[in-house]
């Protein structure tokens, strides 16, 4: 343990902005859309840790040297949001893409959790 007192502990996540998110569920899985403007693809981190889905992104855009901030709606340099997944989701098959600052995540339901139509056998 270092003697620095002004540092956040290594295990505590740094504060982040909450990205506005939409979550839509259909029979095959869940689609999540998150607004992450200012996050290029290489500054986006997606993690599944146990039943937690962790979305983190660093804001990265050009700022002229010596610029003084007058107003900031976004006043932290990163986004962070955690969602709790449920058992029937197959977190090993998450597909993600980011374009124009919008993250799209698709989490399919595990095969056994997908709705099955059961044929009714009629014996005469």
């Amino acid at each position: 343990m270092s003697n620095a007192v002004d540092k956040t502990p290594d295990n505590a996540p740094a504060a982040g902005l909450l990205p506005p998110t939409n979550v839509i569920e259909d029979a095959q899985g869940i689609t999540l859309y998150a607004d992450l403007p200012g996050v290029p693809k290489d500054k986006l981190t997606l993690q599944v840790d146990g039943d937690k889905l962790i979305i983190e992104g660093e804001l990265n855009f050009a700022i002229p040297e010596g610029m003084e901030s007058i107003h900031a709606d976004l006043d932290l340099p990163r986004y962070r949001r955690v969602f709790t997944l449920s058992k029937e989701l197959d977190s090993g098959k998450v597909a993600a893409e980011i374009a124009n600052g919008v993250l799209t995540l698709r989490i399919p339901k595990a095969a056994h959790a997908q709705p099955r139509k059961i044929e009714i056998q009629v014996t005469s």
Binding site: L36, P37, P64, M67, E68, S69, D73, L74, G101
Partner: peptide, 24 residues
């Protein structure tokens, strides 16, 4: 605060810089 798009505004001696966060 709170509108869409979110705005950050900065100033340098040579310019005014406006960042509008308008994804998608």
């Amino acid at each position: 605060r709170g509108g869409f798009p979110a705005l950050n505004i900065g100033s340098t001696p040579q310019s005014v810089e406006i960042y509008a966060f308008a994804p998608g």
